[in-house]
Amino acid sequence: MADEPMTTSTPSESKSTLKLMSKSMYAKEAALRNLFLLCATAAVAGVALIFLFVGVRGWPIIQDPGLGAFLFGKVWSSSTDQFGILPLVTGTLVITIGALLLGAPLAVGTAVFLSEIASPRVRSVVRPAVELLAGVPSVVYGFFGLIILRPIIANLTGGLGFGPLTAAIILAVMIVPTIATLTEDALGSVVPGIREASYAMGATTWQTIYKVLLPAASVGIIDAIILGMGRAVGETMAVVMVAGNAPQFFQGLGEPVSTLTSQIVIDMSYASGTHRTALFGMAVILFLISMGLVALVRVISNRKKEG
């Protein structure tokens, strides 16, 4: 380029000291960009393929007994070929709500303690312990629930102790790390100035927490709880071990119920025909629930940003 005759009078062209990007450098940049694009696409493609797969396999259930009979059918019985998932949906709902009622306050309290009250030394012990909860395999939770918790619940409610209460308590502990970690992040990202301002106004630590910090972090906390809810809806192994797995309507805290996930895992090994199709249909429902929850998080976060 420097050999070209200088016909133009623009000084920048004739006397540029900026190095030009070499061809190899350009190629490398482009390759990297495409590589990352590929990674992102792979994730999206994975989700899409799974949805497509379960959707195709589950589709006939909407045609044969029909969507209404599937979603709102009150009887789940493979021997009589009745596949209404309403009892399973209610089971999932009861256990999830129970887990949230027990687990969310515990988790938010833990996060407040870690973020606002604990000394650095205490924090350095408690935080890894909470994070460890997330790393415990769910079968271990189930085992704990089965051996330790179930007898206690059996004493409380009568019966064998298999049921929504046992499952909800186990799930409550399992969702604590999810909610606590995200809530602590939300509290940590509150502008530091307002914490100081609150104390300077003569607010006590408690007043600062519940009048200033929790409202300021509320969106993040709601997101955290919704994600915890997603975890509770999807959890399978621990629930299978303690819920009792009777596909019947909720009859009491100590009476066996089944959930969408546990019914799939129990029946999948032997189900065939319409039964199998129904299980795929349930997978689609679970898929839609978690998509709905993620969408909800998005909507809440965006609304906060605007207002």
Partner: peptide, 24 residues
Amino acid sequence: GMIFQQPNPFPMSIYDNVAFGPRL
């Protein structure tokens, strides 16, 4: 009372900001 270098109103309404102390 104290005023800081960085203005630090609470993320709440103008009214609630001023009413914060009296409410305490």
